[in-house]
């Protein structure tokens, strides 16, 4: 309900205001030409992309938090964002934006480098067929720091490309058209279904890995499935939108504060929470300083941090959305 409301409201807000009733008639195929053009071709794809990116990041965050049982876990904790940024910065620095895979060069390279980073992190953390969560987090930090230094190096070497790199890394959903949401939606759907199916196992993980094992969970396999799925979701989100911070960290925590520790609820609700969060952040990003746009990553953190701090202070009880 809240998502549907946000969805229509966000469609109506923009450099030219369109009344909500008009938005509905457009969506039902009965609007006038100008409104239809704005809503269907400009706003709708962007809003749908915001929803997809938001849900991907939030649900991936829930997955990482479930497996790593670390309150600081977010979709970027294992270095996926650094890997993707590295790829994107490389492409931009050497002007390869359309050289490799046409208009999809940046997203494809960013996706691949993001996934490769996870493989590297897992390789470092794996000892005799097992991954300890502490080792995993630390190897994520190490790889992140290593790639981070390359990114800084590339940023410092780039003359006029510097703006483009930095803006990419701050995240944005500008000018994406219909292609991106269409590509992303099926993968997102599959990823969410896989994570949903692991909800019960993740509940047992809260008892500790050994207890989960004795209750019949295939611990190493579950860990791998959840980590890889969450990483693929994150990498796909980052590759189309850049690094949007805070969503994957905060949304699952907010949901947990409201509904409790059950991952069978946290995972699906994170999908909605993340959608709404990024949808509104993006609406603000394009509206607040019109006609200039604020990078989306800036808005999500700027709004999210104080809100989260307030909730932490207020305590777990009595929080209702």
């Amino acid at each position: 309900m809240l998502l549907l409301f946000s969805f229509t409201l966000s469609l109506s807000i923009g450099s030219s205001m369109i009344p909500i009733t008009e938005v509905w008639s457009v969506l039902l195929g009965k609007g006038d030409e100008v409104s239809t053009a704005i809503v269907i071709n400009v706003r709708l794809p962007r809003i749908i992309l915001a929803i997809l990116v938001g849900s991907a990041l939030a649900v991936a965050g829930a997955g990482f938090q479930g497996v790593l049982r670390n309150p600081l876990a977010d979709p970027y904790i294992l270095g996926v964002s650094s890997g993707a940024s590295f790829g994107a910065a490389f492409v931009i620095l050497f002007g390869l934006q359309s050289a490799l895979f046409g208009m999809y060069s940046i997203p494809i390279v960013a996706f691949l480098t993001g996934v490769l980073t996870l493989l590297l992190v897992i390789k470092i953390a794996m000892t005799s067929g097992q991954m300890k969560k502490e080792t995993l987090i630390l190897s994520g930090v190490v790889v992140q720091a290593f790639l981070g230094s390359f990114i800084s190096l590339m940023v410092s070497m780039s003359g006029k490309a510097i703006n483009e790199i930095v803006f990419w890394m701050m995240g944005s959903l500008t000018m994406r058209g219909w292609e991106y949401p269409k590509i992303m939606a099926p993968y997102l759907f599959i990823g969410i279904v896989i994570l949903l199916s692991q909800g019960r196992a993740l509940n047992l993980f809260t008892l500790g890995e050994r207890q989960a094992l004795h209750l019949g969970v295939n611990v190493e396999r579950t860990k791998m499935v959840v980590l890889v799925t969450s990483t693929l979701l994150t990498a796909s989100a980052v590759s189309v939108s850049g690094v949007i911070g805070f969503v994957g960290l905060v949304v699952p925590h907010l949901i947990r504060m409201v509904v409790g520790p059950d991952y069978r609820l946290i995972i699906p609700l994170s999908v909605f929470g993340g959608s709404i969060y990024v949808l509104w952040a993006d609406t603000i990003a394009r509206m607040a300083l019109m006609p200039k746009e604020i990078p989306l990553g800036v808005v999500t953190s700027l709004l999210g941090a104080p809100f989260f701090a307030y909730l932490l202070k207020k305590g777990k009880k009595g929080v209702k959305l």
């Binding site: 809260t206 008892l207 050994r210 207890q211 004795h214 947990r256």
Partner: peptide, 16 residues
């Protein structure tokens, strides 16, 4: 289904 283990560690504070 056959074997159950009661570990030494207490159940952590997990909100369930």
């Amino acid at each position: 289904q056959t074997l159950a283990v009661l570990p030494q560690e207490a159940i952590p504070e997990i909100g369930f």
